[in-house]
Write a protein that binds this DNA or RNA. Structure first.
Length: 98
DNA sequence: CTGATGATTGTTCAC
DNA sequence: GTGAACAATCATCAG
């Protein structure tokens, strides 16, 4: 046990880095992007209490194959973050902030 | 090298 | 504007 999935205290995290190279999105983020309108379309009655929950269930309901398209995006998104990281490395290494 | 950590990402819903 | 479940992430740092 090292990183207990504590589903709490999140959002608006504080930034400790100069240009904070915000990570990258997550497969779930991409998946949710597609599910948000799909799941909700099939469950127009359910609200976050249900949809949000069902969403996660469906997410896993899929298989690595179904997640593949989402993971693929997550992977690409990571590269996006890479760009930040790069500048982040430059700025943070720089004494002067330009 | 390895392990542990933290920070972040996006959705929906409501007040 | 925020938080909260839902999930992934995964880069970074440190000794």
């Amino acid at each position: 046990m090292a990183a207990p999935r504590e589903t709490k205290k999140r959002t608006t995290r504080r930034k400790k880095d100069p240009n904070a190279p915000k990570r990258a999105l997550s497969a779930y983020m991409f998946f949710a992007n597609e599910n948000r309108d799909i799941v909700r379309a099939e469950n127009p009655d359910v609200t976050f209490g249900q949809v949000g929950r069902i969403l996660g269930e469906r997410w896993k309901a899929l298989t690595s194959d179904e997640k593949t398209p989402y993971e693929a995006k997550a992977e690409a998104d990571k590269k996006r973050y890479e760009s930040e990281k790069e500048l982040y490395n430059a700025t943070r290494s720089s004494k002067e902030e330009f």
